[in-house]
């Protein structure tokens, strides 16, 4: 009988130790990884408010984990931590998909605008090339400088695309397209004007 009572504290200690809850490390790490991936996919740029919230959830999760760790082992409950981790992971995965989609849309829009701008500049340069050589060319010199500037600006669009700055690439490309069309109209007007004059042979000046 004495021997059985003597075992009681040991059994209790064992019970306490086995009942002691542990943080859901695996779920927390999975949530952290999912948030990192969402960030890498551009979530902080393309869905910034939702990304800030997911970071807030992660911070709340960590605080809850710290709060639980500060409690007496028997009273620790990581259920909320686990639930937050599961929610955070699933939300981060959604954000990753959403950000990837938005990024792809932005990229597609930038590439489309770039192509339109390239074609417009090509048309402008072709018009410049059509201009008569020699004396009559003089009137087109400043337009030619504009066309060359537009051609050079296309590199900036490519640079913005290369650095994944799609909004800048798109606005720049649209600006080039717009300006290029204006320059083309100017050239056509100039060509119509000087076309009435006889083209001159090139000569030393």
């Amino acid at each position: 009988m004495d021997k059985r009572f003597a075992m009681l504290p040991i059994i209790c200690a064992l019970l306490i130790l086995t009942a002691c809850a542990k943080p859901p490390r695996e779920q927390i790490e999975a949530a952290e990884q999912a948030i990192k991936e969402a960030q890498a996919s551009g979530a902080s740029t393309y869905v910034p408010d939702e990304y800030a919230k997911i970071e807030g959830t992660l911070a709340a999760l960590k605080k809850e984990e710290t709060d639980q760790e500060g409690k007496f082992a028997l009273f620790r409950d990581y259920g909320k931590v686990e639930q937050l981790a599961i929610n955070a992971k699933s939300e981060a995965e959604r954000l990753k998909t959403e950000a990837t989609k938005k990024k792809e849309e932005a990229k597609a829009a930038a590439l489309q605008a770039q192509q339109v701008a390239q074609e417009a500049v090509k048309t402008t340069l072709e018009l410049v090339a059509k201009a008569p050589v020699g004396k009559d060319r003089a009137a087109l010199e400043s337009i030619k400088a504009d066309a060359e500037a537009l051609k050079a600006s296309l590199n900036q669009v490519q640079m913005a695309i290369d650095t994944a700055d799609y909004p800048t690439a798109q606005t720049k490309a649209k600006a080039i397209h717009e300006k290029s069309q204006a320059v083309s109209q100017e050239i056509e007007a100039a060509l119509a004007k000087i076309g009435r004059g006889k083209p001159s042979a090139a000569k030393k000046k």
């Binding site: 004396k135 009559d136 060319r137 003089a138 009137a139 004007k193 000087i194 009435r196 004059g197 006889k198 001159s200 000569k203 000046k205």
Partner: peptide
């Protein structure tokens, strides 16, 4: 040479 011409080559 051409009345519509505003400038020369120099």
């Amino acid at each position: 040479e051409n009345e519509l011409m505003a400038q020369t080559l120099g």
